[in-house]
Nucleic acid binder design. Structure first.
Lengths: 335, 335
DNA sequence: TTGAAAGCGCTAACAC
DNA sequence: GTGTTAGCGCTTTCAA
């Protein structure tokens, strides 16, 4: 691998001159520059990125850290962050936090391989984030409320989402409403559930313990939880799934057991993933403003990078998307 | 930001001792190590990643370069590459090639910020790839046949896929088969089209120019191309779309115009994206072995990194996935 | 304009 | 075991 030294030697100039020429500094004469460039071409020379970063002590790169790079759910988020990074002249790399403390993500955070990061990865502890963040290294967390020096939080109002979803069901006449939950230790799940409870209480409805099952936010979990619920005999008129993936699994289970959606049971999800619109019974759900929140996170990151003042935490609104999985029913006699 | 120097000073040891202690070298005494570790903790010290990379002259990281990080189509690919990287003790970062020569991807390639890369990004030219690749820097290209020093190609047999798709339609009795193409300058599109032609000719069928429209591999393109085709009056009994996205758009157009799929027109796609299984008429399509090809690409990359010999290029087989968008018809009289 | 030289933070000989 | 020291490849003063 040719270094700038080789280039300088071949071109017959000093190291620094070569450096100047290569970075287009105006003090080198056109003739010298051409000589240097030609030498570089001949040697197939390319700058060594991290030597430069080391010297400059910044990388001009930010990281987007996700639990699982492959989730289709993140598309819009990635796009929005990318847009912001690009327009600020920064590069964006995405890395996965799979592997927890040993993951690439944590390494990038700890070793400051980037100038800042946006994190949406529950499996990274608050402690690691707080530890890595600091005045010189801003982090925007999109999956928790934790804040600290250099650690800002941007979340979607999941409580409101849970409330809106449940409220929608109630407004449509439903009185017996089940909640299929995500992992009980998840922040997202717990706020959605809080919203559900608020709407239920407000309407004077009671949550039935047997209608609160856990599906872990995955499709198969929704399927299994639903099967179990159906087996118990007492069928709710509507089910609020903690996310769309579980709702899709749940609908499959219902159909298998001979229940039609929405005729026999209404279903509402959360997230508005791409699939939601395309499944056989298009899913009524709560849309998270992924593009907006990614965009906000990006902007905040750059403000911090420029030492501007920002608030500690931001909460974005959600929106109900009505499709075809919820039916209006005549208000039932409360069972 | 504390450096190792600060740590050494605070611990009252030499720089090198601190370095050894921090990296767990066995030559430092337990007592010294503890002292150093304590100092590091106190200063909230973290290694500087690129200083280390610079010294070691390797990064222990590989890059996966994609045109658009957000494509759901890549899920499995990302997962497979990640699995291989992890099991080799390497980190993986994903970067986007949006922005062409100015993109993060190209920067990473040129500046050797990683030890090697897997590329699936048509918008990066062969020239850039050839230029960046070399004995010290292996690249696996998954979207082209180009090979060179340090540049290996892993592709899916798109010609075979095109053939299988078309052949399937013919076997089901179809004689008038349209092809809705992707960008005409795309490698993927051209091989799929070759396969289509081979099957058509083999069956003594002729391609009709009016049935070959271009949809650019995007959903809306498929929609528009289909509308246009339908407008021309002569309706084929089956349509082979260059990818599933276009097929989904196409089916929408057909339905809008009163054609039922598969009763009036049969449809076959290509890729087997996640959606294919979930759309209202589940799509018959050609599955690309994304996990396998990513896995292969990953393994090859590490073989090259270890200076092992590998072949120049690899071609993987594809598989027909039968769902419900193709109907058997009584062989028509050739029109 | 060009060149010599310092040093970014770290690792790894080598010497003690 | 521990300390001294020479770079990794680059940018950027400072002097010529």
């Amino acid at each position: 691998m040719a270094t700038i030294k080789d280039v300088a030697k071949l071109a017959g100039v000093a190291l620094s001159t070569a450096s100047y020429a290569l970075s287009g500094d105006s003090k080198v004469s056109a003739k010298t520059r051409e000589k240097v460039l030609e030498a570089a071409r001949q040697l197939n020379y390319h700058k060594n990125g991290f030597a430069m970063d080391l010297k400059r002590s910044r990388t001009n790169t930010i990281a987007l850290i996700l639990t699982d790079l492959s989730g289709p759910f993140y598309s819009e988020l990635i796009r929005s962050v990318q847009d912001v990074a690009l327009s600020n002249g920064y590069d964006l790399v995405a890395c996965s936090s799979m592997g927890g403390r040993e993951s690439t993500a944590v390494k990038y955070l700890r070793e400051k391989r980037v100038d800042g990061a946006i994190v949406l990865a529950q499996n990274i502890s608050d402690e690691i984030l707080l530890n890595a963040a600091g005045s010189g290294f801003p982090i925007i967390a999109m999956d928790r409320l934790t804040t600290g020096e250099g650690l800002i939080s941007v979340v979607v109002d999941g409580e409101l989402g849970g409330y809106k979803a449940t409220r929608h069901l109630i407004d449509k006449g439903h009185r017996s409403i089940a909640y299929i939950s995500g992992p009980t230790n998840s922040y997202d799940n717990s706020v959605r559930y809080q919203g559900y409870l608020r709407a239920m209480h407000e309407a004077g409805l009671e949550e039935k313990a047997k209608w609160r099952l856990t599906g872990n936010f995955v499709r198969d979990g929704g399927y299994k939880a639903t099967k179990m619920m159906l087996m118990q005999g007492e069928i709710p008129s509507a089910v609020f799934y903690g996310n769309d993936e579980m709702a899709i699994g749940g609908i499959k289970a219902m159909k298998e057991d001979g229940f039609s959606v929405p005729d026999d049971i209404s279903v509402i999800g959360f997230d508005d993933i791409q699939l939601a619109e395309y499944v056989q019974t298009p899913l009524t759900t709560i849309r998270q403003p992924m593009y907006d929140s990614g965009s906000l996170a990006g902007h905040l990151l750059f403000q911090l990078l420029n030492n501007e003042q920002v608030n500690d935490s931001y909460k974005l609104k959600v929106e109900l998307i009505e499709r075809q999985s919820v039916k209006t029913v005549a208000a039932e006699i409360k069972g």
